[in-house]
Design a protein around this nucleic acid. Sequence first.
DNA 1: GTTGGGATTG
DNA 2: GAATGTGTGTCTCAATCCCAACTT
DNA 3: TGACACACATTCAA
Length: 553
Amino acid sequence: MNSQASLLSDRPPGLLYYLDHFQTAMSWLHERYGDLLSPSETEFLSLFAGLPRASQALLVRLIMRRGQRFRASKIRYPELGAVDLAFGPLIELNWIDPRPALSVDDLVKLITRAEISELFNELPASLTKAEAHALLREAYTEPRAFEEWRGNVNERVYLVTIAPLCTQLRLLFFGNFRQGWSEFVLADLGIFKYEAVPFSKDSRAFGTRRDIEDFYALYECRRRLYEEEPLAEVLEQVPRVSSQHEWLQARHAKLLFQIARQHERCGDRERALSLYKECRYPGARLRAIRSLELAGRTHDAIDLARSAQAHPESSAEAQKIERMVKRLERKIGVPASKRAAAVRTERIDLIVPPPAGRESVEMIARGLLAQTDAPVYYVENGLINSLFGLLFWDAIFAPLCGAFFHPFQFGPMDLFSPTFRARRAEVVDECLNTLEANTHAARIRQTFLAKQGTQSPFVTWGLLNDDLLENALNCMPAADLRALFERLLNNLAENRSGLPDLVQFWPAEKRYRMVEVKGPGDRLQDNQLRWMAFCAQHQISVAVCHVRWAQTL
DNA sequence: GTTGGGATTG
DNA sequence: GAATGTGTGTCTCAATCCCAACTT
DNA sequence: TGACACACATTCAA
Ligand SMILES: [Mn+2]
Ligand SMILES: [Mn+2]
């Protein structure tokens, strides 16, 4: 049932390892998504299987590279023999265009600065490539074939016209926007190790064709937004996403939020506001209030802010709303209420010579605070998150239906869903109970050894070592860990950041403290303030260390 | 002539 | 000085090659 | 290829 073993070979990668990987993925898709594939996807699978091996391998090589257009001189794969022959069947299928029309933009991406000078001697040699590009864009508007651009040179450019379909198959296999085919070889080489979570053949990221189409559409919109295409056109293409698919809805909300932000930056506050209002992405309501405020609609802003205050979506929202309400009320003449007392925390002041090298303020503070019997580590979020990830390993990788569906996942698909904990209540409680029974340290050490290097959304392996782990387990009481982990569990997405830069241990006294370092011109951020308030509430020692430069004039 | 950022590769 | 908005660098898997910037 | 923390600029009000 270990699905990872079925994908990853024991033997070293063969000559065409990348083709083996791609074929593995194609049969995976055929087997799991056969009933949901579009006609063109199904056709691709069957036509691909019928191609000569060299043509298959060549296509895989090209789709793994960046871009869709390649100069023949940049296509050198000795293992494939004569590349021209391999291209034949691909051209026959219209999967590759051997003579594509190239815009100036396309052309400039394909040739070097020196070649631009050869082609267009009228351009001053002093221009940078970007400057030359800008001038050429004005001068030449018609696309031409590579051979026409460079009349006296005989070299081909190939366009991989099938690339968009291949991108869809990649999206479908990984079920996310960011992973690519190189996962296979990296896992093969042992560079990435993934937890082997058992899952059945009907475990898949999407269950209807409609969800898959929406997923593709979201990807396209994201890409076009990133390419800074006209906002109205991008917005036009955003799918409605009526599905109950939680992850799709979250992606959809995030996309709308980002489009709204772009509208704000362009000054189109009205459209931004209407997008924010129908968007459930965390922070969208805050932006809606802010947009109302900036539009001068103070009373509308206050109304929305007060209703948000009554039912805040998170402590982060509550924190920002409080500031907003205060400011808005001032605007309409409500007398300023008393300021909430700031959280009382220990303060450390350091005055040090200005930075000689590039040493960060955190490292400077670490050096000055460290004692022989009280070592200091620069960990930021890494320590607490790692301890959490180790103790709750079985909860994070619990084989829930639909949470895992391919062998290269670093966590379950619903990791940041509000229902993550409820869906794993039993395992989560079992992990929490180790803190009551004081068996947590043993559990953490055991997982640290057993899972060494295995990808996890919380464990920073590069930061952890025996010293740090033992100091932490010896000096941090179970009750403290319990409090910290409860807060993490309360909102994994929001609370995995904002922890202090440094942690200092006094092993002899079984004591520790966390220290947030602030250089000149830096201030506590919202998420840091929330963690500090929480720690104060639970008698967990946190200090703020202010670093200033000596003799700055 | 060097160097630093990408792209490619396993 | 508080609050807000925006830009930047750092993680990077590591070795290698190409190319576009430049006395770093 | 984001997530995160920090650096820096701008604005506004006491
Ligand atoms: Mn920090
Ligand atoms: Mn800091």
